[in-house]
Amino acid sequence: MAVDKRIVKTDNAILDAFISLAQTTPLKKITVTALAKEADISRKTFYDRYANLDELIDSLQKYMAQRFEDLFMLPIKHEHILREDIVMDFLEFAEDNQKLLAILKHDSNNFLAAAIKQEGDSMARFLVSELDFSPESAKTMAPWLITFYVEGSNYLLDKWLFTENDLTKEDVTHLFMLLYKDSIFMMQKKR
């Protein structure tokens, strides 16, 4: 099925307008009228896609969270394998969407809570089956470990994207690979 270029163009215009407005206006003060004007679309076109601005913001947050989850939560669920090409792809995505990440990162607690709820049981099972923790200990530690991955990864990504540094994508990819591989390796070794 062919992608309608007009739809893509309009969606991109909405995203660009949102990013532009959010850099100078608090999110709660952005209006559909201002967004439509900035995107050079009608209010009807906006409402054809979203019920309101909260739905747009929620949609963008879910999209960004899904990209983050694809990289950092899937390895936790699937044999703890993190591929270098996937990390590099995510870092390229983060660079390309740096302004949107900066706008949406203030709501990262919602993503963390969702990640713990969604992945907590899986992580606890891993701790029991692979590392011989008791079920009670694993249930307590699983949210801690997920928080470590999510918050630690967020912190490193923020430092790389939003501070002055000379690190390349390759450097940061290598760092993420070391952290993920070594944290799992060290846990397995201690048991």
Rank of each mutant, 00 (worst) to 15 (best):
L71I: 09
D85G: 01
I103E: 01
I81M: 02
L74P: 00
P75Y: 03
L56C: 08
K169G: 09
L53S: 10
H174C: 06
F90Q: 06
K139A: 13
N154Q: 11
H78E: 03
D70W: 00
I57S: 04
L53R: 13
E170C: 03
L60Y: 11
P143A: 05
L127P: 05
A65I: 04
D85Y: 05
N110K: 12
P75I: 06
K62H: 01
H174I: 03
T45G: 00
L91G: 08
V128S: 03
E130T: 14
S134N: 11
D54T: 11
F72S: 02
S137H: 13
H80Q: 09
K159F: 06
F162Q: 10
E130R: 14
T173L: 01
S153G: 14
D89N: 10
S129F: 09
A94V: 11
Q98T: 10
W144P: 00
H80R: 12
L104D: 01
V87Y: 01
M177H: 06
D132H: 15
K77F: 01
A124H: 05
D132W: 10
F162M: 12
V128F: 02
V128P: 03
D58Q: 10
T45C: 01
N109M: 06
Q118H: 05
E170W: 03
H78D: 03
D107M: 12
T147D: 02
S122D: 01
R83E: 06
L156R: 15
F126N: 08
P135G: 03
E95H: 08
S122Y: 00
A51C: 13
L71S: 06
E136L: 13
K77Q: 10
I103V: 14
L104E: 06
D132P: 03
D158L: 07
M141K: 12
E79A: 05
T140A: 04
R67P: 00
